[in-house]
């Protein structure tokens, strides 16, 4: 089992966190999110991202706004809600804790 396979579940679990992070930077539309993710180990496809975004919207973490685009029909631009920002902060703290643990464990 390659490392990549081993970490499939972890990468998936982190995806929501990363999407929150990307959206927190500025208003983005789905293709922007994908572009940013695909440059990393967290490469993701539309088939995964769209259901995730709609779930996050249902949980009121993100919201979108329609904006005209120069090419084609209007696009949905996502932004964080107050609840989303709060979730991002919490997740971020938790992640800091975990990565701290990973770093410190076994070092004496």
């Amino acid at each position: 089992m390659s490392l990549e396979e081993k970490f499939t579940a972890i990468r998936k679990g982190l995806l929501e966190f990363l999407v929150l992070k990307i959206i927190s930077a500025n208003q983005v539309y789905a293709a922007d999110i994908l572009k940013e993710l695909n440059a990393t180990e967290f490469a993701t496809q539309e088939g995964t991202l769209y259901p995730l975004l709609s779930k996050m919207r249902r949980e009121e973490l993100v919201d979108y706004e329609w904006k005209e685009s120069e090419a084609g029909p209007p696009r949905k631009y996502y932004e964080l809600t107050a609840k989303g920002r709060e979730a991002l902060r919490e997740t971020h703290d938790y992640w800091q804790k975990i990565s701290g643990t990973v770093k410190n464990l076994g070092q004496k």
């Binding site: 998936k12 679990g13 995806l15 929501e16 993701t44 496809q45 088939g47 995964t48 259901p51 779930k55």
Partner: peptide, 12 residues
């Protein structure tokens, strides 16, 4: 596009 997934967190 990749396969469309049901509930992402559930699958994870």
């Amino acid at each position: 596009m990749g396969p469309v997934e049901g509930d992402v967190t559930e699958e994870a």
